[in-house]
Design a protein around this nucleic acid. Structure first.
Length: 472
RNA sequence: GGCGCUAUCGUCUAAGGGUUAGGACGAAGCCCUCUCAAGGCUUAAAUACGGGUUCGAAUCCCGUUAGCGCUACCA
């Protein structure tokens, strides 16, 4: 049974790199009919926050990504300690009574640190005695050192990996406060939850050698590993909120009016390729085609700048989805966006669907429906300078007023009838149709640009069109 | 410092011994056109550097450089 997990630590908002890790886990699980586990790695009590936990749920819900099982490491501490103590009891770990090193001492360090002198060799009796006396200690893994071994694992992305145990320090399993370290808790849970594939960021690639030692120390077969290239900033640095701002948070893209799936699609294209030049894919297509063969080994840059905080490819992909997805699927997103902005939908569902269909062809985000699409839903739109210019063309206003009057005189209101009416007026007055066409768009929407004017009439509706022409 | 990983247009990537090094975003131009988009066509733009192996290297090997990751009780 294939089981994967996403294991964020709740110490910050949901990061786009974490979101992508979730997505790859999720796609792999769905593709192979496996189980997706969400596990909150909250063993660092000092840094955990409820706000961060909320942000993880918010982000995943927004992306419409679900999971099958849910755990919190803080509920499972007994298991972690039990497993650590079992490794200790086997003699594969030992107690280290050395006090924690301060940052200043660390800074002075020159060569590689591997273990604290004297502690590996401490006799069991001495160790037990000092522990019983209440002296604080950390439990360290006894990495094979006298006769080094080669620690190996196969990574589904990076291939065969090996490292001499002589280069691995005696890492901690339990802290002096009794809390498990990340390495211990993570491996204990992966064993207990029968995780079959660990899919995570490449920053864990070198930690994996330690994890293999823990798995083996606990008598478990290590799962398969797949490490993902990191998402980095244009300056080559790891994405961080402090340095790069809101671009690293998934909520930024939600607030910018992205469709959840298009952002998922975009994230998939960072560090993975279907290899057939496809870019825009549905969720099902992603599930059907995802594999580790297509995952890259080099880090991917999220392309943003001060002036342009959103990657232009993400925006383009969003506009593609927005314009091509079935309009009935898009409509609920638009409805929610409009409602959130306090805009009411003036007519029924049929009108709404056709209007959304007409105006989306120029839009890139959901927010565009509120800003650039305002005139279709409300009367309090402003007339942009470019539109005013069209209206100020000599004779334009008079022609629009007359068009309004003529339209009011007939009940007929179709794209063809409006066009006929408009072209007849142009012929009658001996002016170019374009003058009235562009003027109409300006009068009806307050904008100099937009969809075909005849579509605009229908989307705005008969009564409102006439009123806006007469008020031009 | 040690260990590990990586290196193709500005960015995302394809090509894993033989291609005019392909596609996409972005940029520029043309066509289409009631405006603006979209769409179609076109242009500019890349194999980090140096050695080797080979008839032939972006592709395999070595080195250099650069970047990233891990590096004493963060995850």
């Amino acid at each position: 049974m294939l089981r994967v997990r996403f294991a964020p630590s709740p110490t910050g908002y949901l990061h786009i790199g974490s979101a992508r890790t979730f997505i790859f886990n999720w796609l792999y699980a769905r593709r192979n009919h496996g189980t997706m586990v969400l596990r909150i790695d909250d063993t660092d009590v000092e840094r955990n926050t409820q706000a961060s936990l909320d942000s993880i749920f918010d982000g995943l819900n927004w992306l419409e990504l679900g999971w099958d099982e849910f755990y919190r490491q803080s509920d499972r501490l007994a298991l972690h300690r039990e497993m650590a103590n079992a490794i200790l009891a086997k003699g594969m770990a030992y107690r280290d009574f050395t006090p924690a090193q301060t940052d200043e001492e660390k800074a002075l360090e020159t060569g590689p640190w591997l273990f604290n002198a004297g502690m590996r060799e401490l006799s069991i009796e001495a160790s037990d005695r000092r522990a019983a006396a209440g002296e604080p200690f950390v439990v360290r893994f006894r990495v094979p050192r006298e006769t080094p071994v080669t620690v190996k694992f196969t990574d589904l992305v990076f291939g065969e990996q090996s490292k001499s145990s002589a280069d691995i320090e005696d890492f901690a399993l339990l802290r002096s406060n009794g809390m498990p370290t990340y390495h211990m808790a993570s491996c204990a849970d992966d064993i207990d939850l029968r995780i079959s594939h660990i899919i995570r960021g490449q920053d864990h690639l070198s930690n994996t050698f330690k994890h293999v030692l823990i798995f083996e120390g606990a008598g478990a077969t290590p799962p398969l590993f797949a490490h993902l290239p990191l998402l980095i900033a244009p300056d080559g640095a790891k994405l961080s909120k402090r340095k790069h701002g809101p671009v690293v948070s998934v909520t930024t893209y939600r607030d910018a009016g992205f469709l959840p799936h298009s952002y998922v699609n975009f994230l998939c294209l960072l560090g993975w390729s279907p290899k057939d030049n496809r870019e825009q894919m549905t969720r099902q297509e992603l599930i059907d085609i995802f594999s580790f063969e297509g995952v890259n080994r080099s880090n991917a840059v999220v392309n943003f700048s001060e002036e342009d905080p959103i990657d232009s490819k993400a925006l383009w992909l969003n506009s593609q989805h927005l314009r091509t997805m079935p309009v009935a699927e898009l409509a609920p997103y638009v409805r929610r966006t409009l409602e959130a902005a306090g805009l009411a939908i003036p007519y029924g569902e049929e009108w709404f669907l056709s209007t959304v269909d007409v105006i989306r062809s120029r839009f890139a985000t959901l927010n565009d429906f509120v800003s650039r699409g305002r005139a279709y839903f409300a009367d309090d739109f402003i007339t942009e300078p470019g539109a005013a210019e069209k209206l100020n063309q000599p004779g334009a206003r008079e022609l629009l007023h007359e068009l309004g009057d003529r339209m009011a005189a007939t009940e007929e209101f179709t794209e063809a009838s409006v066009e006929a009416e408009l072209r007849k007026l142009a012929a009658d007055r001996g002016v170019k149709a374009g003058l009235i066409i562009n003027g109409s768009r300006a009068a009806l929407t307050g904008q100099p640009v937009g969809p075909s004017a005849f579509h605009v009439f229908l989307a705005v509706g008969r009564d409102r069109s006439i009123a806006r022409l007469r008020n031009a």
